[in-house]
């Protein structure tokens, strides 16, 4: 573990920005909320944030991403596109780091999706332990309030300085090259350990049972009337999908330039709550019922992806709960209600 004075940390970030301003992303304030955005100066950093509007997923699975470009004046002229900007993302909370590790598994499974994988491999993630808890978040009870992996560097605020855990050689290298650091002593290591141990208990919102019970609970409650009852209020807007750090479904579309000569194939974020999500060309919609779509998202988070990959695909960030206008998307409320029966 290393130590860095706060002003030295800001110098470190500024020197990274100076090397390549396009590369450095951090958490900034926007109105009274927070976002991941390109940093113009280290002073913009708000490492005391509670949660960002969108997770850092947007840098690895962009809302719109070109997969192919082609020339229509030729009989068949297509090339793969993989636009990679190696990013340094500063201020990622543990639940978002865990979500990214889950996405890594998905995009590496069987067919390797290099559009995602290369962006991940070339990026550096500097995490920060949670200082302020979002009222919507229940990460404390999901086991995602802290993490020992998934970061290149991990910061813990100690007042005048940050403790830095090193998670990778890449992380260590930029630190050694650009930052003025000291070694942390035993007391500091203990202090960080204490701070991390207390984070989970800061969350007021809690899942009332261990998350490991979710797959079975959801299986048993497939026909629970709660789905229909809540779905009656659902706007099918897909906001819960859009803000989720573990929603990765996408649509693929061809976009042709106005000259009709060149075009590109892009993927865009899609959401299983949207009405047309499972609709095929013949008009058949395999998940036409709003309640079935509403249920699908929870089943996917707590059971389907668990069955397939072995992880609970809800990290308790609470973004969906805050984005949902009719207030039915909160997984914590839904899971607790199912448990209570």
């Amino acid at each position: 573990m290393k130590l860095i004075k706060k002003d030295e940390f800001l110098n470190f970030v500024d020197s990274l920005i100076k090397i390549d301003p396009r590369r450095v992303i951090g958490v900034k304030s926007k109105g009274n909320k927070f976002i991941f955005d390109t940093l113009n100066s280290a002073n913009e950093l708000r490492l005391d944030y509670d949660v960002t509007i969108l997770p850092p997923k947007k840098y690895f699975l962009p809302p719109t991403e070109t997969l192919l470009k082609y020339d229509l004046t030729d009989k068949f002229s297509v090339e793969a596109v993989n636009e990679v900007t190696p990013l340094i993302i500063i201020g990622v909370h543990p639940y978002d780091l865990i979500a990214l590790q889950q996405m890594d598994i998905v995009f590496r499974d069987t067919y390797q999706d290099h559009n995602y994988i290369r962006k991940r491999e070339e990026s550096i993630l500097i995490g920060v332990n949670i200082q302020n808890v979002s009222p919507y978040s229940f990460a404390g009870s999901m086991g995602t309030a802290t993490t020992e992996e998934g970061f290149d560097l991990m910061l813990t605020d100690l007042g005048d300085e940050y403790a830095i855990e090193i998670g990778s050689e890449k992380g260590e290298a930029i630190l050694n090259k650009y930052a003025k650091i000291a070694d942390a002593d035993g007391d500091t290591i203990n202090k960080v350990h204490d701070i991390k141990g207390k984070i989970a208990s800061k969350f007021k919102k809690q899942l009332n049972f261990p998350p490991e019970e979710l797959p079975k609970l959801l299986e048993e409650n497939y026909d629970n009337e709660l789905w229909e009852k809540n779905a009656q209020k659902c706007l099918s807007c897909g906001s819960c999908n859009l803000v989720c750090p573990t929603c990765y479904c996408f649509d693929v579309q061809d976009i042709v330039e106005l000259n009709l000569r060149r075009g590109k194939r892009v993927r865009t974020w899609d959401g299983c709550l949207l009405e047309d999500f499972a609709k095929v060309a013949t008009g058949e919609n395999f998940r036409e019922d709003r309640a079935a779509r509403y249920r699908h998202r929870f089943m996917r988070k707590g059971k389907y992806l668990y069955d397939r990959f072995g992880f609970i695909a809800c990290v308790g960030c609470g973004r969906c709960a805050s984005a949902c206008l009719p207030d039915i998307a909160d997984p914590c409320k839904v899971f607790n209600a199912l448990k209570e029966g």
């Binding site: 649509d251 993927r267 609709k279």
Partner: peptide, 16 residues
């Protein structure tokens, strides 16, 4: 609806 064909895009799911 099999959009990607490679188990990523999520459209063709039947339950899990």
């Amino acid at each position: 609806r099999m959009k990607c064909g490679v188990g990523k895009c999520g459209h063709c799911q039947i339950n899990g």
